[in-house]
Amino acid sequence: MTMDDDLSRIGISLPKNLLDRFDEILNFRGYSSRSEGIRDAIRTYITYYKWMSDVKGEREGVITMVYDHEQRNLLTTITEIEHDHHEIIKASLHSHVTHDRCLEVILVHGDGEQLKSLAEHLMAQKGVESVKLTTISVED
């Protein structure tokens, strides 16, 4: 065992539908336990965080976001966040996926730190299921 193999126990609370979907994926992918699946998900989250940390300089990009439009005050909060970042948002597209779920695509241009900040601010909102920032450098 390496030092990374020292285990800590944690407890988490999850909605049943989320846990059920997670268990289906674990079963499909052949994980031996929920713990291994959660460890893998955390490693992926850390990798994505590191990747986002490298978003620097002038960037062009897209933020894709899925959220529950029935979540109390979420639409107002998203609108306020987008208005606070109007200088980097160039366009957005909103689509109703189901009665409760929406997909929003936001085209952005600006400093990588600003784009990352916008994505992380959206990601932190209750009712937002997923946010993904994809960028390219505009510098040669």
Rank of each mutant, 00 (worst) to 15 (best):
E36R: 12
L74P: 07
E113C: 05
M65L: 08
L103M: 01
E80R: 09
G110V: 05
E120M: 02
Y49Q: 12
L18M: 13
D5Y: 05
K56F: 03
R43Q: 05
S95L: 12
E139V: 08
A119G: 05
V62M: 15
S35K: 00
E87Q: 11
E58F: 08
D54G: 15
L118M: 00
N27C: 11
M65R: 02
G61T: 02
L115Q: 00
I136A: 10
T76R: 14
I12M: 11
W51G: 08
I42E: 05
G61H: 06
L93W: 02
M52R: 08
R101E: 11
D84E: 14
E104R: 03
A124C: 08
S92I: 05
Q125G: 14
V62N: 00
L7D: 10
L118A: 00
I88F: 08
H96K: 07
Y31T: 12
M1F: 10
S137D: 13
Q114F: 01
D4N: 13
L26A: 12
C102N: 06
M3H: 12
K56Q: 14
S8K: 15
E36M: 04
K56D: 15
D111F: 12
R29A: 13
T2G: 15
L75K: 07
R29D: 13
V138Q: 07
S95N: 07
H86D: 14
H85L: 00
A91R: 01
L74Q: 06
D40F: 00
T76F: 08
L19G: 08
G57E: 10
Y49R: 13
E82K: 13
V105M: 10
T79V: 12
I63V: 05
T77H: 07
T44R: 03
I88L: 06
S32H: 08
V108Q: 10
D54I: 07
H94P: 03
D68K: 00
Y45Q: 10
K90G: 00
L115E: 03
M65K: 03
L118G: 04
I10P: 14
R101G: 03
E58R: 04
G37Q: 00
E80D: 08
I10V: 07
E60G: 01
H69P: 09
D5C: 03
Q71C: 09
V131D: 00
V66Q: 03
E58V: 14
K132R: 11
S8P: 00
M123S: 13
D4V: 11
H83L: 07
L115D: 01
D23N: 04
E120P: 10
D68E: 04
H83D: 06
A124G: 07
Y45D: 06
D54R: 14
R21H: 15
I78E: 00
Y67T: 02
H83R: 01
S95C: 09
H94T: 00
D111E: 14
T76C: 11
L93F: 13
D5L: 11
